[in-house]
Design a binder for these strands. Sequence first.
RNA 1: GUGGGCGUAGCUCAAAGGCAGAGCACCUGACUGUGGCUCAGGUGGUUGUGGGUUCGAUUCCCAUCGCCCACCCCA
Length: 359
Amino acid sequence: MYTFEDKGGRSLTLRAEGTAPTVRAFIEDNIQGQDRERLVKLFYIAPIFRQDRPQAGRFRQHHQAGVEAIGSSEPAVDAEVIDLALTFYRALGIEGTRVLINSVGCPACAPGYVDTLKASVADSVEQMCHDCRRRFETNPLRLLDCKNETCRQITAGAPTMLDNLCGECEAHFDGVRAHLEALGIAYEIDPRIVRGLDYYTKTAFEFRHDALGAQDSIGAGGRYDGLVEQCGGPATPGVGLGIGIERVLLVREALGVEDVQESREGSFIVTIGDEAWLPGYRLLHELRGAGLKAEIDYRRRSIRAQMRYADNEGFLNAVILGEDELARGVATVRDMVSGEQEEVPLDDLAAHLKGDGAE
RNA sequence: GUGGGCGUAGCUCAAAGGCAGAGCACCUGACUGUGGCUCAGGUGGUUGUGGGUUCGAUUCCCAUCGCCCACCCCA
C-alpha cells in the first residue's frame, strides 16, 4: 500500500481499492435502511494507488470502476456481477475476455483446507522459492498463485479448495455456475485464484485478456460475506468487482479498437474584411446567449485560414459574414461535413442553428 | 523493493566529442470570398535538471527528477 508520513508525522495511506471504502459508506450512511434483506447496488469510479514499481499496465496511480451488490447471498447476484463486467467490456469493443472463477470457501471450510494444503506440500517446502517458504507460514493460500515453475509443479498436485468446500459453499458455487450457464457465459475454473484476506468468501473471479503482457488482469472481484461485519456493520453478504480503466484502454489499443470519433459541434464565425468584424463579434455574443457553442478568429486571418481552423477544431459549421451577406442581412452557413451552404437571415440564425443541433 | 532501458521541435525519432536534423503537425502562399487533395516556402530547441571532464558535451562521468520494461507484489 502507498503509505507515507505527512509533514506532521502522521501516517497516511492512499486508497488501495474500492470495496472497503464503499462498504464503510454503506454502513456509515445506513444506505440499506430498515430492510436488512434489501439488495443495495452501488458503483464507484475512483483513483487507486499502489507503491510498487511501475511497469506496463501497472501504475502508481490508476483508476478503477467498480460495482458492489450488498445484501444478498444469492448466487444469481454473483453471476449478474460477472455478466455486467462482460457487457461493459463488450460495449467498449473488447472481445475475447476470459472469465476465471473459483471458490475460496467460508470460515467453516477454508481453515480446514489451508491445513490440508499445508500438509500436502509440507514435504516439498524445502524445494520451493524463498517467498513460498515464507508464505507457507504466513499465507498458505498464496502458494497457489506463485509463478515460479518449481512451486507450480509442487502445488499442481495439491488438493484444491473446490474439493474441500462445505456443503453450503459447494451449493453456492454450483448455483453460480448454473446461472452463468443460463446466460451462456463461458468460464474457466481456476483453483489458483485466491484471496489473501479472510473476509473474502465463496466466489472469486478474475477477467483476463491475452492481448496484454505480464499484467493481464482487466478486472477482478468476488464475494465478501464477512466484510460488512468486520467493518462494524450488521452481518451482511456482498459481492462486487473492480475494473482497471487503464488496462481496459490498453486492451483496446492492443486490439486496434477505433476510438469513437468525436462528433462535430458548434459554429465558427468567419468574418471577411474589417467591416464584418464587429457584426461578427456581436453575432458571437448572440449565439452564445442563445446557448450555442461559437468561436471566432481574433487574428483577422484570411478566409482560408479561418476555414482551415474551423475544420481542424471540429466545428459543425462555418457562419460566414462578408460584404455581400451584410448588405442583405444574412449569413452564409456552411456545413463542414457535407460542404453544403445556405443563406440564413441574421434574425433567424440562432433558431436555425439550434435546429441543426449545433449547440 | 531488485535489475535493465530511455529522456533531443507540439508528436515520432536521427545526430555517438566539432555549425542540433528529418518526417508528421502547425503557419504562409500558389487559390484576389471558402476547410479536406497537391506543390513550394516558413515558424518552431537553454538537447529533463544540476554539477564534472574537455579548447569544445546532445554525445563521456556523477547526481537528481521523470518515463518505460521485466522481476516482485497484487486489498
